[in-house]
Design a protein around this nucleic acid. Structure first.
Lengths: 202, 202
DNA sequence: GCCTAATCGGATCCATAGTCCCGTTAGGAT
DNA sequence: ATCCTAACGGGACTATGGATCCGATTAGGC
């Protein structure tokens, strides 16, 4: 017998799409407000105004729902800065990360997403895809900087972008240091220093 | 009426200490093997050979148990390196972090601990205490380096140590990049570049 | 308009986290 | 050596809510 197709794949448009949107929105709300361990598919169905059975059939597990949410978020990647200098572009990136992580809703959401990725393999893979997209988008800033001669040739663009975010996430997840504009500017300056020292070669 | 003391505080020695040790060991095992979301107090009691009631009475919640485990781990901090050069000390630190995070048991354990900190406030505070202890221990390497003139005066020792770990944890939690000796050496070199550029002033 | 993919509501199952009770053990002070 | 009681142990019990199943209903897409 032929394997039955996953529900939602044969008629992806219309109602199916609306249900997915509502469920993902509800999932984001719950994650931001209560965290991953409180993510209950029945509650998602309720607050999304969707049948409980539907949610269980489509996603099966909280981890899969988070994975789908992450893939959805990856598609809506914000455009990178183009100030004309790597210095300013990286600072803009760092400030955006700080703004995101300190935003009451977004900050909690990202924490929950990371928690989910640590509890579920599907969510983990989706999280990696998400950050790959984000980093690729901003890597253009570094490539431009290399072309302008602001950074040494051979610099790995994605490495530099990752170096901007790394200390900010470390503060968020490990040490609990405050995340403010000063921390953002320092992170950007640090990533630049690494690149200029030629340590960010791929 | 006077508030009853927390169980285990009046007679902390002997049996009470043995029970705590067994429970913490079992908790570490479960966290490493199954992750935080699978941490069940009843299972802890079983695999620790301890009464279920005791575990519930002493810790009450999985998050509190993780917090206690983290405090216990903080007390057993490993001594830092003293090679005579910051360069080598930081590389030793980076390699230790990589070794820890890639170790089959330790790596999973740390992921679970971070997941716990993202789901429970008590665990979160304990995690911060843990990293504060670790960072303070290794900050001595940087202080020695400053005294030897290898790094600029005014460099923030803890900042530098955090800068070594940050990209490694970012690879572990966010991007999923491979963690190997090359990554460790790069992290150490990057932290040095930041410090030498004078960006790591506290 | 037809066929059926996909949804809805809700009844139902059932695993299990957490509580309670009370008897037993052993810490530690005298 | 003895006593008092802090702390532990075992097991029965309960109730919560995660997950499944069912038949009816709605609407996608050719």
């Amino acid at each position: 017998m032929a394997t039955a197709p996953q529900p939602g794949t044969v008629r992806p448009g219309g109602r199916t799409a609306r249900v997915r949107e509502a469920a993902l929105r509800a999932a984001g709300d719950v994650l931001a407000e209560k965290g991953f361990d409180a993510l209950d598919l029945a509650e998602i169905a309720r607050s999304a105004g969707v049948g409980k059975t539907t949610v269980y059939r489509r996603w099966r597990t909280p981890g899969a729902l988070v994975a789908d949410l992450l893939d959805d978020m990856a598609e809506q990647s914000l455009p990178r800065a183009r100030t004309g200098s790597v210095d300013d572009d990286l600072r803009a990136n760092a400030r955006l990360v700080v703004k995101t992580l300190t935003d009451p809703r977004q900050g909690r959401l990202f924490k929950a997403l990371i928690a989910a990725s640590l509890c579920d393999d599907h969510a983990a893979q989706a999280l990696r895809r998400f950050y790959a997209v984000r980093i690729d988008e901003w890597a253009g800033c570094v490539m431009d900087g290399i072309e302008r001669g602001e950074l040494p040739a051979g610099t790995d663009p994605r490495r530099v972008i990752a170096d901007v975010s790394a200390p900010l996430y470390y503060a968020l997840l490990n040490t609990g240091e405050p995340l403010d504009d000063a921390a953002a500017d320092r992170a950007a300056a640090a990533a630049l220093a690494i690149a200029r020292a030629g340590v960010a070669t791929g």
